[in-house]
Write a protein that binds this DNA or RNA. Structure first.
Length: 751
DNA sequence: CTGACTAAGTTTTTT
DNA sequence: ACTTAGTCAG
C-alpha cells in the first residue's frame, strides 16, 4: 500500500489532515465529512508511510462501538499483518482502567479494585445519606451524585473541594464520605478512573514519562465531547511529543449534561497556538435541502463561527413536515410512509430510522409497527448489563474477586433468599465496624466457630453457611474459567430456579443470564478480573444483529455518528424538543439570572440535538409534530417546536406551522386515525381504549388565544388533563407571566 | 422474612 | 401510564 492508495478518493482538506506533520492538529469537521475515515486513514498513514510503530499510537473514542469500528477500518486498510501489533484503540475509561491496574502500587487502591456503575454508586450514596442523617426527601441521591461527579470531572478531589455556601458544604461532606466508602469497598466509579489517572500522572512524573514515551501519537475522536478530566489527561500524555490529533464538531456537542465541554476546542487552540487547524466542510452524506435545513437551525445558536455546509449531491426532495393529530397518528404516518416507500421499491426497510427525544416516545411508535406487522428494531433501550439478574450474577463474581466489596455483598447476600434479613445485616455492619473491618471481611470471620459474634442460632447458621459457600468459590476461583465459575455459582445458589416464576419475564431473565454465561465463555483462560473489568466497561453484549433489514427506532442521542437514507424525527413540539426540563426557567418570572442563563445553554444544546438528527438523513427527511400528546398519563397540547420555524420555507413542504391547527385538518386526521384504529387486532383493543381517549379530550390547545377575567388576554402554551379537570398553561403579558388555569375559567377569543 | 401495598418520580447516555 | 423504591401487615 502506498500513500496514494491511502488517500484515494479524498478531497484536499482530508488529505491535508491525514498527512499532517508532527505536532498538534485540530480538525474541525462538519457532519458527514468523513471524519472517522480521516482518523483511521491517518493511523494507516502513520504506520505505513511514516514508519511509526503501531505500539506508539493510541486512538481514543467515547464508545466501544466506535472503537471497534475504527479498529476494523484500520485492519481493513492495512490487513491483519503484524504491523498493527500493539495498536491501542479504545475508550478513555478503558485506557485509564488499564493504567490504574498496572500502576496500582502508586495508587491508594489495590489491583483487585472493582468498578462501580451507576446502580452501585446510588446505593453507596444512599448509605452516605443515611450515615450523615440527611433528610432523604430533600436529598436526592442522584442529585448528590451529579454534584460529586461534576467535581470529579473538574478534577477536584474531596480534599480540594471548596464550599462557597452551606449547600456546597453539605456536598463536601457527602463527597468526603462517598469517597471513603468507595475506598472501603476497594472500588472506583467511572469518574474516578479519569481523575485518579490524572492524579497519578501529576504526582508521579516518572510514571507519566513512561506513558508519554509509549504513546507518541495520540488521536481523539469526538473531541467536543471531552470533559475537563479527559482533556487534561490527553494534554499530559501528549506533553513530551506533542503529537496530538483531535477531531471534533462543536455543533454536535450534545453531552454537556454529563460534563462534556465543547470549550475544550477553544482551550486546545489556546494551549497549542501552533496547532494546525483543518476544516472539513464538505458533506458527503446529505443533499443540499437537508443541509440548508440543518444550517437554518444551527445558525440560530450564537457564539459560534458560522459554518457553510455544502454538498455536491444534486438537490433532493424537500423536507416534509407533518402535523399529526396525536402520537398514534404520528405512528400511523411513519408506518404508512415507510410501507409506501418500500412498496414503491425505492427503499428497503433497513433504510429508515425514526428518532425521538425521549425513550418513552418509542411506545406509541412500537405499537404502530406491531399493528402493521412491520418488524422494527429499538436501538439501545434497555442496557443488558443494567438488568437486575445480570447485575446479581456479576455481584456474586465481584464478591468472589474482591473481598471488600460490601455493595455487592448487600446486593446478593439474600438473593435468592437465604434467611438473612435486614436486622441481621445491620448487626453484621455494626459488628464489622466494632472490629474495624468491613462487612464482607467480618462475615468470613464466622468460619471460625470460636469467634465471638453477636448472632443467635438461626442467623449465625445462615451467615456461616453463606461464608462457607463464598470460601469454596474463592478456593476454586483461579482454577475455573469465568464461565465455569459462573455455572458453579448458579448451581450452588439455585439462582435460575429463583428466576423461574413461570412468567414470560422470568423466562427472559433466565435467557439473559445464560447469554451472560455465553459471553463469559470468551474469557476462558483469562483471569476473572479481566472479565469483570470488561463487563464494567462494555455497555452491551455485542450480539444484536446490526444487519437485520428493518427500521431502527432510537433517541436523537444514540443517532450520533449514524446515517440513514430516510429519517423521521418525531415529537417536534415545545416541551418535548426542546424538552420541558430545559425551557421551564425561561418563562418563570421567579427564575434567577443564573437559571435563565442555564436554560439558554440547555436550549442551545437541544438545538444541536435537532441538528444532529437532521444531518443523519441522506435522501429524505420527515419532521413530525403532534397537536395532542399523551405522556406520563396526561394528555397535553403543545405548540410546534420553535426549531421548526428556523427551517427555511423554501426547503420544506407540508404542514404550515400556523399557531393554530385548522379544525378541518384535525377532522380529516381524526378520521384517518379511526380507520387505522379499526384495523387493530382484537387483542389490541382493550389496551387501545386508554390511548384513544385523549383525542376528544381538551377544549383548548397550544396557540389558542384566551381571555381570563382577572389577567385578560393570554396565549395557551399547553393543556393537560388531570383527572376530569382540564388544566391550561397560559402565558399572560407583562409581569403576570405563566399561570396554570382550570379550563372552565377561560374563554376562547377569536383571532 | 415475605408478599402486597403506596408513594414518588419519571431527559438525554457512556463508561 | 408505568415503573420502582420504600413501608407495612401477615
Amino acid at each position: 500500500m502506498t500513500t496514494s492508495a491511502i488517500l484515494r478518493g479524498m478531497n484536499p482538506q482530508q488529505c491535508q489532515a491525514v498527512t499532517a506533520g508532527d505536532g498538534p492538529v485540530l480538525v474541525l469537521a462538519g457532519p458527514g465529512s468523513g471524519k472517522t475515515r480521516v482518523l483511521t486513514h491517518r493511523i494507516a498513514y502513520l504506520v505505513q508511510e511514516r514508519g511509526v510503530r503501531a505500539w506508539h499510537i493510541v486512538a481514543v473514542t467515547f464508545t466501544n462501538k466506535a472503537a471497534r469500528e475504527m479498529e476494523n477500518r484500520v485492519v481493513g486498510l492495512l490487513g491483519g499483518s503484524g504491523q498493527l501489533d500493539g495498536l491501542s484503540i479504545g475508550t478513555f475509561h478503558a485506557l485509564c482502567a488499564r493504567i490504574l491496574r498496572v500502576e496500582a502500587d502508586y495508587t491508594p487502591l489495590t489491583r483487585d479494585y472493582v468498578i462501580f456503575d451507576t446502580d452501585d454508586q446510588l446505593s453507596v450514596m444512599r448509605q452516605v445519606i443515611a450515615e450523615l442523617n440527611l433528610d432523604p426527601k430533600k436529598n436526592n441521591p442522584r442529585t448528590l451524585l451529579n454534584a460529586v461527579s461534576a467535581a470529579k470531572n473538574e478534577l477536584i478531589g474531596p480534599a480540594e473541594y471548596q464550599p462557597r455556601d452551606y449547600a456546597d458544604e453539605k456536598i463536601r461532606r457527602v463527597y468526603v464520605r462517598y469517597d471513603e466508602l468507595l475506598r472501603e469497598n476497594n472500588a472506583r466509579d467511572f469518574d474516578d478512573l479519569l481523575m485518579h489517572t490524572v492524579q497519578l500522572f501529576r504526582e508521579h512524573p516518572d510514571v507519566l514519562e513512561r506513558y508519554q514515551r509509549r504513546y507518541r501519537y495520540i488521536l481523539v475522536d469526538e473531541f467536543q465531547d471531552t470533559n475537563m478530566a479527559q482533556y487534561v489527561l490527553v494534554r499530559l500524555l501528549a506533553g513530551l511529543h506533542r503529537n496530538l490529533f483531535v477531531v471534533g464538531d462543536p455543533d454536535q456537542s450534545i453531552y454537556a449534561f454529563r460534563g462534556a465541554d465543547y470549550r475544550n476546542v477553544q482551550r486546545f487552540r489556546e494551549d497549542y497556538p501552533d496547532a494546525q487547524v483543518i476544516l472539513l466542510e464538505q458533506n458527503y452524506r446529505s443533499h443540499q435541502a437537508i443541509l440548508d435545513a440543518a444550517m437554518g437551525v444551527i445558525d440560530q445558536n450564537p457564539d459560534r463561527p458560522k459554518k457553510k455546509l455544502f454538498s455536491e449531491r444534486k438537490q433532493g426532495p424537500l423536507i416534509h413536515v407533518y402535523e399529526a393529530y396525536n402520537e398514534d397518528d404520528e405512528a400511523r404516518f411513519v408506518v404508512e410512509t415507510i410501507a409506501d416507500l418500500v412498496a414503491r421499491g425505492e427503499y428497503e426497510p433497513g433504510d429508515f430510522a425514526i428518532m425521538y427525544r425521549t425513550n418513552a416516545q418509542s411506545r406509541a411508535l412500537e405499537e404502530g409497527f406491531r399493528r402493521a406487522n412491520m418488524p422494527y428494531r429499538v436501538v439501545g433501550a434497555t442496557a443488558f448489563f443494567g438488568r437486575k439478574e445480570i447485575k446479581d450474577v456479576i455481584a456474586y463474581l465481584r464478591l468472589i474477586h474482591n473481598p471488600d466489596d460490601n455493595v455487592s455483598l448487600q446486593r446478593i447476600i439474600n438473593v435468592p433468599t437465604r434467611g438473612i434479613g435486614l436486622k441481621t445485616l445491620e448487626t453484621l455492619d455494626t459488628w464489622a465496624a466494632d472490629l474495624g473491618t468491613t462487612a464482607p471481611q467480618a462475615l468470613m470471620l464466622l468460619l471460625d466457630e470460636n469467634v465471638d459474634a453477636p448472632f443467635t442460632g438461626r442467623a449465625r447458621h445462615a451467615l456461616t453457611a453463606f461464608a462457607e459457600q463464598l470460601a469454596e468459590w474463592r478456593a476454586v476461583r483461579d482454577q475455573l474459567a469465568p464461565d465455569e465459575l459462573m455455572t458453579r455459582v448458579l448451581n450452588d445458589t439455585g439462582y435460575l430456579s429463583y428466576l423461574d416464576d413461570r412468567t414470560e419475564q422470568g423466562e427472559s431473565r433466565i435467557e439473559n443470564v445464560l447469554e451472560l454465561r455465553g459471553y463469559a465463555e470468551q474469557y476462558a483462560g483469562l483471569p476473572l478480573s479481566t472479565f469483570l473489568e470488561e463487563v464494567s466497561l462494555v455497555s452491551d453484549v455485542d450480539t444484536r444483529d446490526d444487519d437485520e433489514n428493518r427500521p431502527s427506532l432510537m433517541t436523537l442521542h444514540s443517532a450520533k455518528g449514524l446515517e440513514f437514507p430516510v429519517v423521521f424525527i418525531v415529537g417536534l413540539e415545545e416541551n418535548i424538543l426542546p424538552h420541558a426540563r430545559s425551557i421551564s426557567p425561561e418563562r418563570n418570572p421567579l427564575a434567577t439570572a443564573d437559571e435563565k442563563e442555564a436554560a439558554r445553554r440547555a436550549v442551545e444544546e437541544e438545538r444541536r440535538l435537532f441538528y444532529v438528527g437532521i444531518t443523519r438523513a441522506k435522501d429524505r427527511l420527515y419532521l413530525v409534530y403532534a397537536t395532542i400528546r399523551s405522556l406520563y398519563g396526561d394528555s397535553r397540547a403543545n405548540l410546534p417546536s420553535r426549531f421548526l420555524y428556523d427551517i427555511p420555507e423554501k426547503v420544506r413542504e407540508g404542514a404550515a406551522l400556523s399557531r393554530r391547527a385548522r379544525a378541518d385538518r384535525d377532522q380529516e386526521q381524526f378520521q384517518a386515525l379511526l380507520r387505522w384504529d379499526r384495523g387493530a387486532s382484537l387483542e389490541d383493543r382493550p389496551r387501545r381504549a386508554g390511548s384513544a381517549r385523549p383525542a376528544a379530550a381538551t377544549r383548548f390547545k397550544g396557540g389558542d388565544l384566551v381571555w381570563h377575567s382577572k389577567y385578560g388576554e393570554g396565549v395557551v402554551l399547553s393543556v393537560k388533563n388531570s383527572g376530569d379537570m382540564e388544566l391550561v398553561d397560559v402565558l399572560f403579558p407583562g409581569d403576570v407571566g405563566q399561570k396554570t388555569i382550570v379550563a372552565d375559567f377561560l374563554k376562547r377569543m377569536e383571532e
